[in-house]
């Protein structure tokens, strides 16, 4: 097995200066995602969630930092590891969890499941199960912004695995050709399922993947929410000023397996522990908050308690919500 990267060492070192409110609110959202995913993992183990379930634990700073640069009307689209994105865009954890349990009041009425949820209201365009397919779609969302002449942009997330799909490069070409406002966020968590990036990619610096299309790209410390926001600001400004697409490679890490059925034998326990101990996005935010005296231990404990309550309520709702009525079988095929 190839040696995995030791630490995320990004070439964009700058971090955004966070106010007290920004530190606390990003900490809280990251924590909501973490606790949500832990609960989803438990519920999967209890048999309440079926099929595939890909957890976002470890990667929370990416989506939370990016969301901080978005404006009303911007669009977000991603692949199948999507629970974090939904929560970050403001979707209700109850509706997301109820979709995971396949119930009537899930975001897709129980018909989509973990990988297929959407919210027009929150600008979340899915939740797509085919690796890489969201990249042309997200480019199309940007096309719509360009066509309408608004100043909105599309944030199109995909992973290091999807970065090897052909349609990604078809999209890059059109996006730069037509100067479409899209930020391609490559969440490089080092493993495409069980294949490490060094075993799958001829060029492991994914921020360079747009070079032959003249798309600029940066590598970003995706474990630091402030670095993510700083890079996101720069990319968003580029897009909104009509210069076309931008690539951000977020160096991140997932603590859990690819999906619930993955024992993750392709990496060492030490590798996971190293990131957990020294680079955890939530722990780092917590330390900063305490260090800067933005909040006391007690105040943080209170936030933790609130977050746990929120997630427990979501789990409770998702457990007792009824399954979709059988009459829903044939609805929503056509409109």
């Amino acid at each position: 097995m190839a040696v995995a990267q030791k630490n995320p060492s990004a070439d964009v070192k700058s971090v955004a200066e966070f106010s007290k409110e920004q530190e606390l609110s990003s900490y809280r959202t990251m924590l909501v995602i973490r606790r949500f995913e832990e609960k989803a993992g438990q519920m999967y183990g209890m048999g309440l969630i079926g099929g595939f379930c890909h957890l976002y634990i470890g990667q929370e700073a990416v989506v939370v930092g990016m969301q901080m640069v978005l404006k009303e009307g911007d669009q977000v689209i991603t692949g199948y590891r999507d629970h974090g994105h939904m929560i970050a865009t403001g979707m209700d954890p109850k509706g997301v969890m109820a979709e995971l349990t396949g119930r009537a009041h899930g975001y897709s009425k129980g018909k989509g499941g973990s990988m297929h949820m959407f919210s027009v209201e929150k600008g979340f365009y899915g939740g797509h199960g085919i690796v890489g397919a969201q990249v042309p779609l997200g480019t199309g969302l940007a096309f719509a912004n360009h066509y309408r002449g608004n100043k909105n942009l599309s944030v199109t997330y995909f992973g290091d695995g999807a970065a090897n799909q052909g349609q990604v490069y078809e999209s890059f070409n059109m996006a730069e050709l037509w100067k479409l406002p899209v930020i391609y966020v490559i969440e490089n968590n080092r493993y495409a399922m069980g294949t490490s990036i060094t075993r799958s990619s001829a060029e492991v610096n994914l921020s360079r993947r747009g070079l032959s299309f003249n798309i600029p790209g940066d590598q970003v410390d995706g474990m630091d929410v402030r670095a993510v926001k700083a890079a996101g600001e720069k990319a968003a400004e580029w897009c909104r000023s009509g210069k076309g697409p931008y690539i951000l490679e977020m160096l991140t890490y997932r603590y859990r397996g690819h999906s619930m059925s993955d024992p993750a034998k392709y990496r060492t326990r030490e590798e996971v522990d190293e990131v957990r101990t020294h680079h955890d996005p939530i722990d780092m935010a917590r330390h900063r908050i305490l260090e800067k005296k933005f909040a006391s231990e007690d105040a943080l404990k209170k936030i933790d308690g609130e977050v746990r309550d929120l997630i427990n309520q979501a789990a409770e709702f998702a457990t007792h919500d009824p399954e979709p009525d059988v009459s829903e079988l044939y609805t929503d095929v056509y409109r």
Binding site: Q75, I77, Y125, A133, V135, P136, L137, G138, T139, G140, L141, A142, F143, A144, N145, Y147, Q167, E170, S171, N173, M174
Partner: peptide, 12 residues
């Protein structure tokens, strides 16, 4: 690519 881009535009 352009089929997917068109679908994305339609989703929007």
């Amino acid at each position: 690519g352009f089929a997917g881009l068109g679908i994305g535009a339609a989703l929007a």
